[in-house]
């Protein structure tokens, strides 16, 4: 143990696959991170097995059961169309999550690809792409989303697209910066001198170098994607209102807030909990992968 610690000090540049195991251990010791991971996992699990645990069909309308109070048959009561609130919340996790995760995957892939290409090749491609992304970045995200959804009409693919689109400049900029510094490494020059193709260098040398910032950014942006979906649904630009999403349910419960507050409170609580969970997990991942940022935030205590 002692010798190991000594070795770490003597060789600060050491980095090998075994460090991922060390990161894993650090994560297990991070209380807030584990709390976030537990919530995220729980919600993900619920989303995955929704049909097995939901007691009712979330879309089934029951005109004779509207606004029922909590009971043994309807744990959280029913909404204005007599649909079971509990079942709708469970299915809502499914759609909200699906949109959030696919949107994050979309912006991660596109942003990373743009960042890799612009950072590696620089020159005209870099100028043109990055200026385009600057324009995108300068545009308020929600406004842009409203604009696009107003033109193409709300649908799940359209929602994924607009939620992902706003995050692309951020990914591209961070990846580009990391690539600009990583490609100066002499081992990248060595790979070129051996005759590696550009794509080989991008895949094998540069992508692994930028994997940490990508992971941090995508885990943090998952919470943001879920709020974005909820906000757009709340504004009435989400998916088909009969489909249960948390944002959509929040909106639907709005008019009855005085009489039946639980219709809005439960989806609102779930959105809050999910965002909290993903943010806590993302923060923990960032603290572990980027210790320098930790010491900046906490006044150098970690240094």
């Amino acid at each position: 143990m002692k010798a190991e610690a000594l070795l770490d000090v003597a060789m600060p540049r050491s980095a090998s696959p075994s460090r991922w195991r060390a990161y894993g251990r650090q994560f297990l010791q991070n209380g807030l991170g584990m709390f976030g991971a537990a919530i995220s996992l729980l919600i993900t699990a619920i989303a995955l097995v929704a049909p097995l645990i939901a007691p009712y069909d979330p879309i089934q309308v029951n005109p004779d059961k509207i606004f029922e109070a909590r009971s043994w048959s309807h744990w959280l009561g029913t909404d204005e169309l007599g649909r079971d609130l509990f079942s709708r919340l469970i299915y809502g996790a499914r759609i909200s999550f699906f949109i959030g995760i696919v949107a994050v995957v979309f912006k991660t892939i596109v942003g990373t690809a743009v960042g890799l290409v612009t950072g590696y090749f620089e020159g005209a491609v870099d100028h043109v792409l990055m200026r385009l992304l600057d324009v995108l970045y300068a545009f308020p995200r929600t406004l842009l989303a409203l604009l696009i959804l107003a033109i193409v009409g709300p649908s799940i693919p359209a929602l994924i697209f607009v939620i992902g689109l706003g995050g692309i400049p951020q990914f591209a900029r961070i990846v580009r910066g990391a690539v600009l510094s990583a490609k100066q490494n002499e081992y990248v020059v060595a790979a070129r001198s051996l005759g590696s193709t550009s794509s080989h260098i991008l895949w094998r040398y540069l992508l692994p170098n930028v994997s940490a910032p990508i992971l941090i950014l995508s885990s943090l942006s998952l919470a943001r994607a879920i709020t974005a979906e909820a906000s757009l649904s709340f504004l009435g630009l989400g998916v088909d209102p009969t489909l249960p999403t948390w944002g959509g349910m929040l909106r639907a419960g709005g008019p009855y807030l005085r009489l039946y507050p639980h219709l809005a409170i439960f989806p609102g609580l779930l959105i809050m909990l999910a965002v909290l969970g993903f943010n806590a997990m993302g923060d923990a991942i960032r603290d572990i992968l980027d210790p320098r940022m930790l010491s900046r935030v906490r006044g150098g205590r970690a240094g």
Partner: peptide, 22 residues
Amino acid sequence: LRDMRRQMQIIFQDPYASLNPR
């Protein structure tokens, strides 16, 4: 040029930066 690179190689100054740690 990539084929030609077989014929000509380079050895670097910094033995730390010139090997991919991964």
